[in-house]
């Protein structure tokens, strides 16, 4: 199978990568760029652990082909903290205690970051709807929802 060469921006860095044509964006991020913060939980667009921002909008990176990402702008969990300073949401999820095993956390942070960007003052229902595609088995979502509301204030 021939490789495809693509150039894209990931966490503000321009990257040129040779990717197999059946490679997903998730696989590219983890295997080609070694950004292993983004997780694979189902490879079927259901669990949300692989959520990244693509051109500012959250997507399941397991549902995107790397080959179609020419020119795309991707943000992963590693790109949320700027110059060593945690984002507000990273801070509030720590304060609220919204992290347990941590496997859903990267995707959860990305979904919540996107929510607060499009809706800075979400209601409880809006917060919960925004993360319906991010499964968490540890927390019961209680402190995750708290953290998102704290960050919105």
């Amino acid at each position: 199978m021939t490789l495809k060469t693509i150039t894209l921006t990931v966490n503000d860095m321009v990257e040129t990568v040779d990717v197999p044509q059946n490679m997903t964006l998730l696989q590219m991020i983890r295997e080609k760029l070694s950004l292993t913060g983004t997780k694979n939980g189902c490879a079927a667009g259901e669990c949300g652990a692989c959520t990244v921002l693509m051109n500012g909008e959250p997507v399941n990176s397991c549902m995107v082909l790397a080959a179609e990402c020419e020119g795309a702008n991707i943000t992963t969990v590693e790109g949320l903290a700027k110059a060593g300073k945690l984002s507000k949401l990273q801070d509030t999820i720590i304060q609220a205690g919204g992290v347990q095993c941590g496997f859903c956390t990267p995707g959860m942070l990305i979904s919540a970051t996107a929510l607060l960007k499009r809706n800075p003052n979400p209601t409880d229902t809006e917060v919960r709807s925004a993360i319906v595609g991010n499964l968490c088995r540890c927390t019961g979502y209680v402190r995750i929802v708290d953290a998102i509301k704290m960050a919105a204030k």
């Binding site: 667009g45 949300g48 959520t51 997507v59 979904s111 709807s129 319906v132 595609g133 991010n134």
Partner: peptide, 9 residues
Amino acid sequence: VASYQLRNR
């Protein structure tokens, strides 16, 4: 339909 991130695709 499904989730917000899925509806982006």
